[in-house]
């Protein structure tokens, strides 16, 4: 009951979904759509676990006065303010309910979006520091990596003069020949790895996720 039933469920639903792929009939499409909905709905309910986990970890920090506990109050405040605004059916801010709530929208636009966009833009710096550190001709492989990256980065550099069109052509070649081959091989390999892993789950060989007893 605790272990056999879940394994049986994995097996049955796994094969059901494999077979479903080969059946074009509308009943099979209906089953597919319905099961997709299931997964989504389970995910929504599971979010409660996530929020509980976030709250508990933050609250523990505050309660036990762990280092940086003060910031955890900010997290909790942000979380609960957002929840409050989103569920504000009493319209404290004289605006619409739910996801149209004024505070809810503005918190998202002026807190989440700027910080996320800035986090993303840090990549400009990190890509530079990673290039500096890693692109050294230590070995043949590192040199290949370095040369390919340099050619592509130089492709539009007008200071190269007559070399520039050659760089341009060379970089198009690099992207369309070796890069294509590398990607294709990785995709085929990954495809086989995925199918193998999924089959192992269905056959019950990989069962770490189910826990013990």
């Amino acid at each position: 009951m605790k272990r056999q039933l879940p394994l049986a469920m994995v097996f049955i639903f796994g094969f059901l979904m494999i077979i479903q792929y080969f059946i074009p009939h509308e009943y099979s499409e209906w089953v597919n759509a319905f099961l997709m909905d299931w997964m989504m709905i389970i995910g929504v309910f599971a979010l409660a676990l996530g929020l509980w986990s976030l709250t508990r970890v933050s609250w523990d920090k505050v309660r036990q006065k762990k280092p940086n506990w003060g910031y955890s109050i900010v997290t909790l405040a942000g979380l609960f303010l957002m929840m409050f605004f989103g569920f504000d059916y009493f319209r404290h801010f004289s605006t619409a309910v739910g996801s149209d709530n004024y505070m809810y929208i503005h918190f998202y636009r002026h807190i989440v979006i700027p910080i996320q966009a800035t986090m993303f833009s840090l990549l400009a710096f990190f890509i530079a520091s990673a290039a500096y550190r890693a692109f050294r001709a230590r070995s043949l492989l590192a040199t290949l990596l370095l040369v390919a990256a340099l050619v592509i980065m130089l492709r539009f550099n007008p200071f190269l003069g007559p070399l520039q069109p050659i760089m341009e052509e060379f970089s198009v070649w690099l992207l369309n020949v070796p890069n294509l081959a590398a990607k294709r091989a990785i995709v085929i390999g990954v495809g086989l790895g995925m199918v193998a892993t999924a089959l192992k789950v269905i056959l019950g060989i990989e069962r770490a996720y189910l826990g013990k007893d």
Binding site: I127, A128, A131, Y132, R133, F135, R136, A137, L146, L150, M153, L154, N157, F159
Partner: peptide, 11 residues
Amino acid sequence: ILIILFIIMGN
């Protein structure tokens, strides 16, 4: 150009 210069310097 800056990134390329850094790469060259590193090498």
